[in-house]
């Protein structure tokens, strides 16, 4: 598999998923770029994997979590000196944005990888490092919660 066409097809979905998960488009782009750079560096191995996308999502999620921990630490230290930055919501439908962002971490990750990244449950499990059964359970709980938060006008199946 060639890297470039795969990269051009996958990057927007990884970027969208990271944006939903971390809430900040700039941080999301940085995490996605880091993951693809690592994939490029190891492409001779990653390109032969059954699911290079799953590997890339997993790396991007790890990078995002590590940066999130560092960012919260920095925010804590800098809180006294400057106000918290607020990011523009990168989705026109604020109701959906807020509902997905309100989900618990695992449910938010599962629903984002399913609906934004369009991954099958097997690849979601690989990206999250959990079993497919756990993914199914998380998706079920997330849909139930979203149905409550969004109301009957929405199809969350």
């Amino acid at each position: 598999m060639e890297f470039e066409p795969w990269y051009r097809a996958e990057f927007p979905r990884v970027l969208g998923a990271m944006t939903m998960l971390c809430g900040d488009p700039e941080t999301a782009r940085d995490c996605a770029s880091e993951a693809f750079a690592r994939a490029l560096e190891r492409w001779s191995r990653v390109g032969k994997m059954e699911s290079p996308g799953g590997w890339t999502y997993r790396v991007a999620l790890n990078v995002m979590r590590r940066r999130g921990r560092r960012a919260s630490l920095e925010a804590k230290l800098l809180r006294r000196y400057r106000p918290t930055e607020s990011h523009e919501i990168p989705l026109s439908d604020h109701q959906v944005w807020n509902a997905v962002r309100a989900l618990p971490d695992r449910q938010r990750t599962a629903i984002t990888l399913r609906y934004v990244a369009d991954l099958p449950e097997r690849e979601i499990a690989e990206a999250m490092g959990v079993s497919p059964g756990t993914v199914a359970s998380n998706l079920h709980d997330a849909r139930k919660r979203l149905a409550t938060l969004l109301g009957d006008d929405w199809n969350v199946a």
């Binding site: 927007p12 970027l15 989705l91 969004l150 929405w154």
Partner: peptide, 23 residues
């Protein structure tokens, strides 16, 4: 009319890739 969650989230996945040279 029922709205679809997938359609509502789709605009998120339309960002331009980082230039390959940068990567």
């Amino acid at each position: 009319m029922t709205r679809d969650l997938r359609d509502a989230l789709a605009p998120l996945a339309t960002g331009e890739p980082t230039p390959l040279a940068t990567l």
